[in-house]
């Protein structure tokens, strides 16, 4: 896929990255608009064209990604990205909430694998476990509330699918164009000194034996030290928020019980 991009860039200079971004976003928006449930039905005639448009958008997106040094790692990374995007699309367009929860779980697993590919092993595995538990709870919740063979009215319709898709696509286009500006090579004299420079020097040098250990690569020591010192207040506030959420949910649930008993 990536040599296609180089071929077009070398032979047809007209295909700038902005045009590719615009085409990707347009096709993705069209695909999403056609896939979203509208007016209580979803025509089967639109499913194949919408998935075809989405496939084209994903292929163009894959060609615009930056090339990494290791092809196996690049293939793995790209696979997880595409799995997350496709499962995200299906999760928001499926009419049944039970299938939406299933695809959300796949999206969460793919996103956790992306985090692992980015080097955050501990965080990725932790989020993977948390999301697995969350997906199980969501399944139980949906089954308890409204699992039935018939879809409800809220599953069959959407609020302003055209406007929602346009708003999201505009934001996506602006974000992608801004990110593409990052790829423009800055002159070395103009680059601010940052930790990335030190990291790049570390990358160019041969890694030591202890650097290849997953815990050291993840910065586990750095993570735990920063959590207990520099981010101690934020951590404490988050724990307090968690306790307040549990207490609040208990109060709301008990008040609902009182309402039912009064009736």
């Amino acid at each position: 896929m990536i040599p296609i991009r180089d071929f077009f860039y070398d032979n047809y200079g007209l295909l700038s990255s902005e045009i590719l971004v615009a085409v990707t976003v347009t096709f993705l928006a069209l695909s999403l608009y056609l896939l979203l449930p509208k007016r209580g039905y979803r025509s089967r005639h639109f499913q194949k064209p919408s998935w075809f448009l989405g496939f084209i958008a994903i292929v163009i997106f894959a060609t615009t990604t930056q090339r990494l040094n290791d092809p196996v790692f690049e293939l793995l990374f790209l696979t997880f990205i595409l799995a997350a995007i496709i499962s995200g699309i299906v999760a928001i367009t499926r009419r049944s909430p039970i299938y939406a929860a299933l695809w959300f779980a796949i999206c969460s697993v793919s996103a956790s694998c992306i985090l692992i590919c980015l080097g955050s092993y501990i965080l990725g595995i932790t989020i993977l476990i948390i999301n697995s538990a969350a997906a199980l709870l969501t399944f139980g919740f949906i089954f308890k509330l409204n699992w039935s063979s018939r879809l409800s009215s809220s599953d069959l319709m959407t609020n302003e699918p055209l406007l929602s898709t346009v708003a999201g696509s505009l934001l996506l286009g602006l974000l992608l164009i801004s990110i593409k500006q990052l790829s423009a090579e800055e002159p070395i004299c103009c680059r601010p000194p940052s930790k990335a420079t030190a990291l790049a020097g570390r990358i160019n040098s041969k890694p030591k034996e202890e650097d290849t250990h997953p815990l050291n690569t993840d910065g586990f020591d750095q993570f735990s030290q920063a959590l207990s010192s520099r981010y101690f207040v934020a951590t404490g506030l988050t724990v307090l928020l968690f306790l307040l959420a549990i207490k609040g949910s208990t109060v709301i649930a008990s008040s609902g019980t009182e309402v039912r008993s009064c009736k």
């Binding site: 930056q66 990494l68 995200g88 609020n159 898709t165 696509s169 934001l171 974000l175």
Partner: peptide
């Protein structure tokens, strides 16, 4: 991971994160 270009990893990660975020936004709105 160590030898991968940090700028390329950053750009690919940002692209993926932006698309996933906007997908969720469209779903939450619609």
């Amino acid at each position: 991971v160590l030898f991968a270009s940090t700028l390329a990893l950053l750009q690919n990660g940002l692209l993926a994160g932006s698309i996933i975020f906007c997908l969720g936004l469209i779903g939450a709105l619609s």
